[in-house]
Design a protein around this nucleic acid. Structure first.
Lengths: 335, 335
DNA sequence: ATGAAAGCGCTAACAC
DNA sequence: GTGTTAGCGCTTTCAT
């Protein structure tokens, strides 16, 4: 990069001191109107741009937040990021983005990087692999405000914001039952993720509340389009196949739909399906997918808003909030 | 944030000078093994984390690149971002992410922010609104390396990397012709975007090369799922409706499919469709969409790799490259 | 083998 | 109304 123009250059050319220039640039009332004008004009001519790095160092504040997400290439996360970026933009905050790629190792490295980069706060959604939390704990020891979204953990000094996974799952499964399903399968993610636990519980509760026994054999470890393609066939060909499936995300549901259509299982007559996410693709497919809208954009907006509050609070002894966004059942053609 | 532990704290507690501590921390051979060990141990106990901001200021280098994209919530862009982040991660670079949200104003502000934040380089894809380029020009005046991807401009000192839009469109339309289409419509974006121009030209050339006259009446301004839903009906109900459509992106193509199915136009018998992007949803839908894979991840990877080269070059007088990634026709069920 | 001091660019307390 | 100076945290040249 070219040698940058500094306040000092302006001061020298104008025969002023740096402090005068600094003040003139920010319209300090002490400085004469004439000087102010002269300074600004020259700043303009020289193409002066304040150096935020210097400011950051001086103020121990970077106006930057760190963001760790599992994978940006996942519609739900990108809508959350959209919400985060929106609020950041409106508040003159910058977003340093990292992907964990579902790797624990990488997530640990990311938190280190954020700490050395002195971000003012961190927004994170943990990877599927993550069990140990000391890397996040460390962040709290530095008193860096931390807000988890979607895939959260609860035993840290950190706020959390999630879609109410229990309610969402409960609503989805209840809806399937009301539509007449008797044998409802669950396609879900690894057990230790908070969100899958909650959805699992919502599934269970909806069943028992409606007098249907919970059957662990109807729970399948499957949470991607590809996996759904792989395992659905054998499941849907069984003589005692399920008449309803609740999938932990839309991609998985779409995989099931694809296979069902291929082997001639009629949707929604023979098989009803509810997804989770309300991804764009859930309306683009055929039949359109009944699903749970998680309001990703809203989650992002609120997570960032809350983080800013924490950053601007005068001390770190706040009581972490656990916010829950009530998701919404979107009834379409698969039920 | 808590008062951070600095090199000075370590120096004081150990009765050493800051320079010794600094050197010890980076295993400088001058420092005795004993001192090194003592320093590192204490650093560990105190939870010392080097302050990159100080380094950045000292070195006039931030190891950060700025990224400006139209909208993250667009599958193609998020896959590009994924590629960018991958390379950044592997090279210890950080990504500061901004969305223009297709707003020229916002894009201008974003470039300003990047300049004051002294990013080492910028990766950008311009907004649909952008016509004037002085904000990017300014970046080049500061000699901040600049690489455009996907939606590029050519008259700046900046590298560009695009999917070969002309070839992609040519391949798509040729494929439609080979499948027997005689009357092929184009659904595309605003004319001034480089990519739509190129695809438009590819469309035209494929037609004329195969002895079909180019008819401007078959070109529709439509490049979103929603718009396609709106305008497709009237087009597909016409007595002399097209028998093939080339859509500028997959979402648009999916909108067309949806309407075609609704009003009973058979795909691919009566109407053949080719999209552009190879989004996840293009395989999830029914019938599966024939489309052009743009290799978004690869574009991101190469853009970031090239940017790093520029950043690490010893001078700014490089000759900008214009890289072209050859896209690939993915034949599925809509043709 | 270790220390002193300058400097990266900027701000603000303290002069005058 | 303007200037001087210290300091944010770190590296590095030059001493010793």
């Amino acid at each position: 990069m070219k040698k940058q123009v500094t306040i000092k250059d302006i001061a020298q050319q104008l025969g002023l001191s740096v402090s005068t220039v600094s003040r003139a640039l920010k319209d300090h009332p002490d400085i004469s109107v004439k000087t102010r004008a002269a300074v600004k004009q020259l700043a303009n001519i020289l193409g002066y741009k304040p150096n935020r790095i210097a400011l950051n160092l001086k103020n121990s504040k970077t106006n930057t937040i760190g963001l760790i997400i599992p994978m940006i290439e996942h519609n739900f996360f990108s809508s959350v990021v959209n919400g985060i970026e929106e609020v950041a933009y409106n508040n003159d905050y910058y977003v340093m983005m990292f992907q964990s790629n579902e790797s624990y190792m990488r997530e640990v490295l990311n938190t280190q990087t954020l700490a050395t980069n002195r971000v003012d706060g961190v927004l994170a959604s943990i990877s599927k692999e993550t069990k140990d939390l000391s890397h996040f704990k460390q962040l709290t020891e530095y008193e860096i405000p931390l807000v988890f979204f979607d895939r959260v953990v609860e035993d840290l000094h950190a706020d959390t914001i999630v879609s109410d996974d229990f309610e969402g799952a409960y609503a989805a499964v209840t809806h399937l039952i009301e539509r007449g399903c008797k044998k409802i399968a669950l396609f879900t993610s690894p057990r230790h993720l908070n969100i899958s636990q909650k959805r699992h519980e919502g599934y269970k509760k909806a069943l028992t509340d409606h007098g249907i026994d919970y059957d662990p054999d109807l729970v399948y470890a499957c949470d991607t389009f590809e996996d759904a393609i792989k395992i659905s066939k054998s499941i849907l060909k069984k003589i005692d196949k399920p008449d309803g499936i609740f999938a932990v995300n839309d991609a998985t549901a779409l995989g099931i739909i694809k296979i069902a259509k291929k082997i001639g299982v009629k949707i929604p007559e023979e098989l009803k399906i509810v997804g989770y996410e309300n991804a764009k693709s859930s309306q683009m497919c055929e039949p359109e997918l009944t699903t749970i809208d998680q309001f990703g954009f809203e989650i992002g907006r609120r997570a960032m808003t809350l983080l800013l509050e924490r950053i601007n609070a005068d001390n770190y002894n706040y009581k972490p909030k656990n916010i829950t966004i009530t998701p919404k059942l979107i009834i379409r053609e698969t039920t």
